[in-house]
């Protein structure tokens, strides 16, 4: 498909006039739609993964089946997933199946990082906490989660970047977002749309990556300081 759009790469490839004329009513809404899809999906995925991860870190036997199922979800080709979801009763076309699929894709990496983050808390730190009389809940919220947070945010980073990329395909089932520009660009053989959509999606992914990396570092002030 992309070869179609890039057939006549030439001086006319990037039509700046089109960009300035359609910025407000086509490009910006697409960008906003994309941000909405990505944020909503990551947020929902996090709401599911956090308690799931905590539960799994407590009931270890649940870990293999959980990674198996989320791994299976992760391996479904995105286009196929979108089409299957559309076919489900009560779902249909639009952003809903896109968000469902994006959430499903994020679960594996998010749950795994929640568990890895909690696992990374040193045994002796937990033992000291218990020995000093912290309750299980206090150990979770005051010790385990704060120490796991940077690893969890690292997972959010990977999930977000992945989601921003996959979300473009959601336009195929009327999910909106930057994919809208790309798909119409391809079907109308108008490369500018494709390029604008792709560049914005890439920029968004890079920006999210940098922002979350910054957050990850900020959440670990104790690791920045080193013995002189």
């Amino acid at each position: 498909m992309s070869s179609l759009a890039l057939q006549d790469l030439g001086p006319k490839t990037l039509d700046w006039t089109w960009i300035s004329n359609n910025f407000g009513d086509e490009i910006l809404p697409a960008l906003q739609g994309h941000i909405f899809l990505s944020l909503t999906s990551v947020a929902i995925a996090l709401v599911i993964s956090l308690p799931m991860g905590i539960l799994v870190s407590r009931y270890r036997k649940a870990y293999p089946p959980v990674t198996f199922i989320t791994g299976l979800l992760f391996s479904i080709p995105s286009l196929a997933a979108f089409m299957l979801l559309v076919a489900l009763p009560g779902v249909g076309l639009g952003p809903v199946p896109v968000i469902i699929a994006l959430v499903a894709y994020s679960l594996l990496v998010l749950i795994r990082n929640v568990v890895a983050g909690i696992d990374s808390v040193p045994e002796e730190t937990k033992d000291a906490a218990r020995g000093m009389g912290l309750t299980n809940r206090q150990i979770l919220f005051r010790v385990e989660l704060p120490l796991a947070l940077p690893v969890i945010v690292a997972g959010v980073r990977i999930a977000t970047v992945t989601i921003i990329g996959i979300a473009t395909i959601g336009a195929y089932i009327n999910g909106g977002g930057l994919g809208e520009l790309i798909f119409t660009g391809i079907s109308r053989n108008f490369p500018t749309r494709v390029i604008v959509g792709a560049v914005l999606a890439t920029l968004m992914a890079v920006l999210a990556d940098v922002l979350l990396l910054w957050l990850e570092r900020r959440l670990r002030p104790w690791a920045r300081v080193r013995r002189a």
């Binding site: 040193p122 002796e124 730190t125 937990k126 000291a128 906490a129 704060p146 002030p221 104790w222 690791a223």
Partner: peptide, 11 residues
Amino acid sequence: YAIQQIGLFPH
């Protein structure tokens, strides 16, 4: 309660 591995809260 004090232990060999100390177990200070790193954060």
